[in-house]
């Protein structure tokens, strides 16, 4: 997408400069030729291809960016001014953590984003897209961390004066460590 854009941009600005500095440049092509080639033939295939590619990519991401869709772990993420509470409805005995989300690496995680007050948005830039936590709704987003490690997360919908500080951390663990982490027994 980036390189495509660079090419198209150079093309248009180049044509502008050429017509300006080179009288008679482009006379060979009739006026309607310019419009048909530049206005229709050029953008239509590019846009069509891009749109359909984006559709299929979107479906893929909706499934969590991996083909393993059977083994999904649900996480409830409840935003409130100005922190996140993370809990695991399907894991009895797990603890609710504030601004710290433990996940197992290599497994697809389904975030169920909810809000107690205003709209917040859950976003971990390196793990995937974002999802708004809208009061009264439970929106879902699948994310996926390949490697164990620490990933920074932010609230990306303006939610008042504490918005800038509404950050959290995601820690992806190996399966064993994850078991310990959610019951609070993992040494830091």
């Amino acid at each position: 997408m980036l390189w495509g854009s660079v090419v198209l941009f150079t093309l248009v600005v180049g044509l502008f400069a050429a017509t300006l500095f080179h009288p008679r440049f482009g006379r060979g092509l009739s006026q309607s030729g310019w419009i048909v080639w530049g206005g229709l033939v050029l953008p239509l295939p590019v846009l069509t291809a891009l749109t359909f590619y984006a559709f299929s990519q979107g479906e893929f991401l909706l499934n969590g960016g991996s083909d393993k869709t059977e083994d999904v772990l649900e996480v409830r993420a409840v935003g409130s001014m100005w922190q996140w509470q993370f809990s695991y409805p399907s894991l009895p005995g797990s603890r609710t953590a504030t601004d710290l989300l433990h996940i197992p690496a290599g497994r697809t995680i389904e975030i169920i984003a909810e809000s107690e007050d205003v709209i917040h948005s859950f976003w971990v830039p390196r793990l995937g897209g974002k999802i708004d936590a809208v009061p009264g709704h439970a929106n879902r987003l699948r994310i996926h961390a390949d490697q164990p490690g620490r990933y920074g997360g932010v609230c990306s919908e303006y939610c008042g004066t504490g918005h800038a500080g509404m950050r959290f951390e995601v820690r992806a663990h190996t399966a064993d460590d994850f078991e310990k982490a959610i019951i609070g027994e993992l040494a830091r």
Partner: peptide, 25 residues
């Protein structure tokens, strides 16, 4: 995505105008 097409049509109509005229700086 589609709304980009009428924009492109206009941009190339302008370029066509320039190409067939004598643009003054």
């Amino acid at each position: 995505a589609l709304v980009a097409v009428p924009t492109a049509v206009q941009i190339f109509a302008w370029l066509a105008t320039m190409a067939h005229g004598r643009p003054r700086f």
